[in-house]
């Protein structure tokens, strides 16, 4: 659905002045950007069968489309104890479009304190993406799914 620029009450009085219009548009764009960024910030989910708790850490910079980057996930027990020996498989895609990720990301390094480096992540269009982790640890398996909104 298209989002119409909503100038609101503050703007109405000086709508005729281009500078103010630009200023307000800038604020509107900033807010839109902030919302977009917020959606890809640190997210914590319980795995499907609640065996683990998984946190997808906020990337250092906002994620742009078509840029190869790394992400960090932290895996703990449901009580918050760090898990060090997890085997992680990464999958995902855009459910709405019925396609997978454009790359094959992998967990390549254990960084300590339950944190794992996932390399090779890329999103090649804007919209809602899912990042799915299949986790094997301490003889248990479970899956975690994150929703990311790319602008």
């Amino acid at each position: 659905m298209p989002v119409r620029v909503h100038l609101g009450k503050i703007a109405q009085a000086r709508y005729d002045l281009p500078m103010n219009k630009i200023f307000i548009l800038t604020i509107v764009f900033s807010l839109i950007w902030a919302v977009g960024a917020a959606q890809s910030q640190t997210a914590r989910v319980e795995t499907a069968a609640k065996r683990f708790s998984v946190t997808l850490e906020e990337p250092e910079r906002p994620v742009a489309i078509n840029v190869m980057h790394s992400r960090i996930v932290r895996i703990t027990t449901s009580n918050g104890a760090a898990i060090a020996d997890a085997k992680i498989k990464v999958d995902g895609g855009m459910a709405a479009h019925g396609h997978g990720l454009p790359t094959a990301p992998q967990a390549t390094q254990y960084l300590g304190d339950g944190r794992y480096l996932i390399e090779g992540v890329k999103f090649n269009m804007s919209g809602k993406w899912q990042l799915k982790l299949s986790i094997d640890a301490a003889g248990q398996s479970d899956t975690a799914s994150f929703e990311l909104a790319l602008k």
């Binding site: 489309i65 078509n66 269009m125 804007s126 919209g127």
Partner: peptide, 22 residues
């Protein structure tokens, strides 16, 4: 540019109008 219309930007995106993907 409308994803509910042409859907062109699903692949032809960015200033070069390509995602350089397959």
């Amino acid at each position: 540019i409308a994803d509910n219309k042409g859907q062109c930007m699903r692949c032809h995106n960015g200033p070069l109008l390509t995602d350089n993907s397959f």
